[in-house]
Amino acid sequence: MNLVRSEFLKIRTTNAWWLFGLGAFAMLALTFLVNALGAYYALSEPTPEGLNPDDAATFEATRDVVYQAANLYTSGQFFGLLFVLLLGIVVITSEFQHQTVTTTFLSTPHRTAVILAKLVAAALAGAGYWLVTTALNIPATIIFLSTQDVSNQLGEWPVLRSILLNLLAYVLWGVLGVGFGVLIRSQIGATVTAVALYLLGTAAGAIFFTLFANWLDADWISDLQYGLPSIASGLMVSGTNIPGQPVFWVGAVVLVGWSVLTGTIGTLITRTRDIS
């Protein structure tokens, strides 16, 4: 417990957490606007004519109030998770950047305990981001839905489930960040790689698997993109099942898998590494 407190104090006594928070807030405002706009059209416009049956089914599903409400309540997730990832990375790489890792391992020679404390601290920080994001999303969504003459939908289990699974996503991305930071110790290197992988990798992965699936005419290949952590997080918080997508809990399983994997590899590496 002392260790987690100490790790949390490390986060609190430097600037990264509120700078990233500011970034997450700005992106939250932006994505909420975009989501609200999307919801406005989806809820008011009829399904366009002339779509093929598959697309029409997808479109129909997104017109569902529950789907839109879940989407709005979890606004800002894509970029919020990116900032949580970065914070997780900084939690570990700043120790190497500023050579404080020496002091840290002198206070606690049991390195596994240090990494575990960092994982917990990053996860808690992620939960903090979720708390603030959600505290802003809930009133904003309620206001928006009421302008559309729709009730707040908070009584719907899929909506609540999305909000709670969104918490899980924020927590796990903190863990992912620490695991990633152990693998690439250079702060600049790790941050740039993470941002590039997150933004470009997500898009590239989605396009790659979709094209590949079309080419081979095998739908299961398209589903492989949900193995990417960022796409998995989005899937996890979808309020309703969109045709052609795996079920929400597949996303949760994938994300937990990634977190366990990076956390374990990171811990094992750190245990034996020379600090000089």
Binding site: N2, L3, R5, S6, L9, K10, T13, T14, N15, S94, H98, Q99, T100, T102, T103, T104, L106, S107, T108
Partner: peptide, 29 residues
């Protein structure tokens, strides 16, 4: 048991001196 001074630059540049020590106090109880 042991107090060590290994390199002069081992504190986070953006953290205050007193907070640096408090972090260590926290970890060591």
């Amino acid at each position: 048991t042991v107090g060590a001074v290994l390199e002069a630059s081992s504190a986070h540049k953006g953290r205050t001196g007193i907070n640096h020590l408090r972090v260590i106090c926290g970890a060591a109880g």
